[in-house]
Design a protein around this nucleic acid. Structure first.
Lengths: 206, 206
DNA sequence: AACTCATCATACTGGACAGTCTAGTTTGAT
DNA sequence: ATCAAACTAGACTGTCCAGTATGATGAGTT
């Protein structure tokens, strides 16, 4: 029984099929990109007939859009709704960077990132969705922390927040996505330590 | 006969055609991506018949590869063979970051970057070419400068070099490519100032 | 003049694929 | 048991496009 009638959107059989399709679509789109993905392949990966996809989503663009929204929102809740950033700066920043780098190393996340960049010209709304939800919020949280710690003597918390997360994102971009790992290896650990040092050690002066 | 009159590869009529094709290809590939580019369109943009393209390049992949090599090498020579990084740290780093950010803001450069990332899975050699020539060398130059300035007290010059350039690259990525500009504006100037402050002000201590 | 080579314009071939259609099957509520 | 909605399998259409083929033009060489 289903609570008399008001079927919840998130466990009705319809929503289950929709989710099943999205799961298949995630596999294919994130591994082969938008152009490299055929609807037949999505259907096969989702274990669903092609017609069913078209009864749940308007077309390929609609499916892709829904997919990115789905993954982005999911990530947001899981990864940013975690801690509220308190603690001794050196230790906290180190932990934060480590967790951040580790989570973003997940292939599915890297693939989402690559596809978002690849299709940012064709789907600017999706790129903006990502900017608004993930990047902007992350920056806000981190800059709030910097503001709450005047002993760090950070004059521009937003800019500093960008530098912090941007260094880590571009690290993954260079090392993983552009295969820099095989050209000039650089340990993530080293970047994190240097980054924390740049931010924390300035408070030694004065 | 061909060695009798040693036509220079770079100004013979053949090479001119090749260059003409590449110029057309740059326009189309960098603006529409690999999949979004048809050979007919390249031919039209280059003002050349399709057959001519196929007599200069093996196929679409070959043309794309040649294009990326061409642009990457060109860029490298123009943008990295510039200064040798000497001068007072605060002023020099500020200037360097400003020039760097300004040059990378060029749409053609951003498009190359986007396409490289988009196709990094399909063309890993090209991504590595970029890593090897541009990223790696840039990092080497900058870390050499840090090493030559012990008063900056940088314990890990390579990591610091990555943080410096990575912050700026990810800034463009977030603000321009992912349209963050329209979501949460952040002046490049602010990032540069904060970045320089993080690196330089530490030398006040001790 | 005869030959060669690069080029051009255009037509063609074959394959991939988005999206539709048809016809038959399952499921679940009443 | 009946009915409608959701689903499946697979054929089909129209389009796009990489790559090839054809046949003609023009320039330089011998």
């Amino acid at each position: 029984m289903r609570a008399v009638k008001p079927k919840r959107l998130d466990d009705s059989p319809l929503a289950e099929k929709r989710e099943q399709i999205l799961q298949g679509a995630i596999q294919v789109f994130l591994n082969h990109g938008y152009a490299g993905t055929s609807m037949d392949r999505v259907a096969a990966a989702a274990g669903v007939s092609k017609q069913t996809i078209y009864s749940h989503f308007q077309d390929k663009e609609g499916l892709f859009t829904a997919l990115v929204e789905r993954v982005t929102i999911h990530r947001l809740q899981r990864e940013l709704g975690m801690q509220d950033l308190h603690g001794e700066p050196e230790e906290l920043l180190y932990q934060l960077a480590t967790v951040f780098l580790h989570k973003l190393s997940n292939p599915e996340y890297l693939n989402l990132f690559r596809v978002l960049i690849a299709e940012s010209a064709r789907f600017p709304e999706l790129a903006q969705l990502y900017s608004r939800t993930v990047i902007h919020r992350g920056r806000q949280m981190l800059s709030a922390y910097f503001r709450a710690h005047p002993e760090l003597k950070i004059t521009d918390p937003e800019a500093a927040a960008h530098i912090f997360s941007g260094s880590l994102v571009s690290f993954l971009l260079a090392q993983e996505i552009l295969y820099g790992k095989q050209v000039s290896p650089l340990e993530g650990e080293r970047v994190i330590k240097q980054l924390v040092a740049l931010i924390v050690q300035r408070s030694d002066s004065s």
